[in-house]
Design a protein around this nucleic acid. Structure first.
Lengths: 205, 205
DNA sequence: TGTACATCAGTGAACGCGCGTTCACTGATGTAC
DNA sequence: TGTACATCAGTGAACGCGCGTTCACTGATGTAC
């Protein structure tokens, strides 16, 4: 990695921390460059303007999340051939992952962008939409595989169920921040897991 | 209602709209007073500073939400004596209520405050915590009544389940904003309802 | 009922500070011939 | 291998604008005697 892209990453790390704690507008370039230890003009060498920073943060978030979920799926695949079992394992692994972050998960940049969308240009809003639609697609595919083998006990829309995964994490993050309790998010993921189990798992007589 | 508190309410309405769309810091007092049709100094007659506005918005939100949920509980109580049925009716009514808002629910001020907490003083953060703890208490009481009659099929913590109601709405609001689709939140509430049903309702053989 | 004073609900002008952005410049590294 | 030029990754100073907040003031309404 070149010297330049190291600096760029450092700017983004520092910016993301501040944005998740205070919001986008309240995070000044001045404070970002102070923490990233460069000058203001250095910031503008890497980003055309402040909106470009938001855009870059969301694009990076998409890549990182995809890697995380790919990894969880791969690990679940090693442990079971059954799509329902894989989903239940994947959700457990996700809960563990959320619990293993010291000081708790800092929050989701997509949620921040969603709640501040009038601040951003079309590019940023589209990137945010793509992020959420990507997650929907991923989980919908998995639920379709499950539903083929295990007819759900309630009539549910599988796209809505796929959204429930993201929604549970996003809601959990809001709650964990409001309650100042990092454990909340994984708790909510485990409740989602319980629902998936009750919805698809065959009844034991 | 006196002339003064009408103006105060108008300031808060206008401010809340803007804050939910752009965040707290990006919403200037200048813009608030322009839309509320008073002068800047008029704003400072009603609110000591900008933080006091945030505090007032959260306190008002708590009162309004409590009224809404009291009303939903009362309507459900008229329709059934069974606590599980009442919860299922209540969640259905909540979904309908969310669907009936033209242009969709604008979002939750508690979520905004949670994601911008470094901006606010202790008063505001405490008010936000109280809001969320209030919801937990309300729903926990209802789930305890249900669990007394219907043993849950999975081992769940009833406080976490109570949080799931708020978490589902908060997550749904984030998703509906990101997807620009107002229907998402009620969909998620209906999935929560499906979970509650599977978790508590006795099996039909 | 009249008068004096207090409170309510604001107005208007001014303040200083910090913000995002621009611009001319620079030293170090990379590339072509 | 040496030289010329280009690109990379920044620096430093300056800009004008908008922000939150303060302050002295004011007209309308309410209250005490």
């Amino acid at each position: 990695m070149s010297r330049g892209s190291e600096t760029r990453d450092r700017i983004m790390d520092v910016a993301q921390d501040a944005i998740l704690a205070k919001g986008f507008d309240a995070t000044s370039i001045e404070e970002i460059v102070a923490n990233a230890e460069i000058t203001k003009s250095g910031f503008f060498y890497h980003f055309k303007d402040k909106n470009a920073l938001a855009h870059a943060l969301i694009e990076r978030h998409i890549v990182i999340e995809d890697e995380i979920f790919d990894d969880l799926e791969a690990r679940a695949k090693e442990l079971s051939d059954d799509p329902l079992q894989r989903m239940l394992i994947g959700l457990k692994l996700l809960a563990e992952l959320l619990d293993d972050i010291p000081d708790g998960h800092p929050g989701c940049i997509v949620a921040t962008a969603a709640y501040q969308d009038r601040l951003f240009d079309k590019d940023v809003r589209e990137a945010n939409l793509r992020a959420v639609l990507g997650w929907r697609q991923r989980f919908k595919r998995q639920f379709e595989e499950i539903a083929k083998l295990y007819p759900p006990k309630e009539d549910v829309d599988l796209a809505a169920l796929a959204d429930m995964v993201s929604s549970t994490v996003e809601g959990g993050l809001v709650m964990s921040r409001a309650l100042n309790n990092p454990a909340i998010t994984s708790e909510q993921v485990m409740l989602l897991r319980s629902y998936v189990k009750l919805l698809f798992a065959p009844r034991m007589h």
